Simulated assay, not measured.
Amino acid sequence: MQKMITIRSGEHHLSGALHLPHYKKEDIPLLLFVHGFVGSKVGEHRLFVKAARYFTERGYGVFRFDFSGCGESDGDYAEVTLTNQLNEVRDVVTYLGSVRGIDQRRITLVGHSMGGAVASLTAASDTRIKQLILWSPVGMPYEDITGILGPKAVHEITRKGSYDYHGFMISQTFLKDLKKHQPIEAARSFTGPAHIIHAKADEQIPKEHAVRYANSLNKRVDTKQVFEQYIDKADHTFSSYSFEDELFDNSLAWLEGSPVGKSLSQT
């Protein structure tokens, strides 16, 4: 079952899609997908749509949404900042708290690319997030995103204040705001289970970030050890059916074996 949802966040309305299993006997766990830089709730090659269908077939609820300035949501990308996106995720989580049938003890944030940075920062400060899964996550927002934009774009943003990147206006405010956030360090404040899966042939975000995230998370006290996984030959968006299958299967295997899942299944 899929239902289109509109959520108010600040001055904007965010477009979302809620997927629920057809049959459920009890409150269901929920995965909240967070898309990346100039992305959308559909995802490259429909990654998030396919993921939603995969996980709902296995008993999970899924919510995917567009940040403001993206997809079908209000706003323009010229106004986007990572700080604003953090506020929008919190508003989405608040909405999900009102959805009947969702087990509030089993909300997992799944972030891809820039969405991985947003997910890490959110999980670090919002106790409603119980688990965290990162797919090829941005680890150093300013360095990673300016690396994608390239030096010419960064120079033009510095000189003119903005740059047209494939139809998305990237502002100087956006870049300055990126410097404020350090998601790898922030992840240490998250107290729940976490897992990282990175594309081994990632051409956009360094695969070494997976180790950096794991090392940061493993500095926490009294938490289960975090391991990173790699999908061999996969590119940044996991753009083949075989890469997607491995990504989804590995994520599900971790979810089914996570401490939160175990403790609830035994009660």
Rank of each mutant, 00 (worst) to 15 (best):
Q2N: 01
K3D: 13
M4W: 00
M4F: 01
T6Q: 05
L20D: 06
H22A: 15
H22E: 15
D27V: 07
P29L: 12
L30P: 01
L30R: 01
L32Q: 10
V34H: 02
V38T: 15
V38M: 04
S40D: 15
F48Y: 15
A52F: 11
F55W: 11
F55G: 10
F55T: 12
Y60G: 09
F65H: 11
D66P: 12
G75M: 02
A78H: 13
V80W: 02
V80F: 06
L86M: 14
E88M: 04
R90A: 15
R90G: 13
V93E: 08
T94H: 05
G97H: 12
S98V: 01
V99H: 02
V99T: 04
D103R: 01
R106E: 14
I107T: 10
H112N: 08
H112R: 05
M114T: 06
G116K: 03
A117R: 08
S125H: 13
D126E: 13
T127R: 15
R128I: 06
R128F: 07
L134S: 00
W135L: 11
V138Q: 10
E143L: 07
D144W: 09
I145G: 09
G147Q: 03
I148R: 03
L149S: 05
L149G: 02
K152P: 08
V154M: 11
V154R: 10
V154W: 09
H155E: 15
R159W: 00
R159V: 04
K160T: 02
S162V: 10
Y163F: 14
D164S: 00
Y165K: 07
H166G: 00
F168A: 13
Q172L: 07
T173M: 10
F174M: 14
D177L: 12
L178N: 08
K179T: 14
K179G: 03
I184L: 07
A187K: 00
F190M: 08
A194N: 09
A194R: 11
I197A: 00
H198L: 00
H198T: 00
K200R: 09
D202L: 06
E203S: 15
Q204V: 06
P206R: 02
P206E: 03
K207V: 12
H209V: 02
H209I: 01
A214I: 00
N215C: 01
K219C: 11
V221K: 14
T223K: 13
Q225N: 06
Q225Y: 09
F227W: 01
Y230F: 15
I231R: 00
I231G: 00
H236T: 11
T237Q: 08
T237N: 14
S239R: 13
F243T: 03
E244W: 10
D249R: 05
L255E: 06
G257V: 05
S258W: 02
V260E: 12
G261L: 06
L264Q: 12
S265K: 13
T267C: 01
T267K: 05
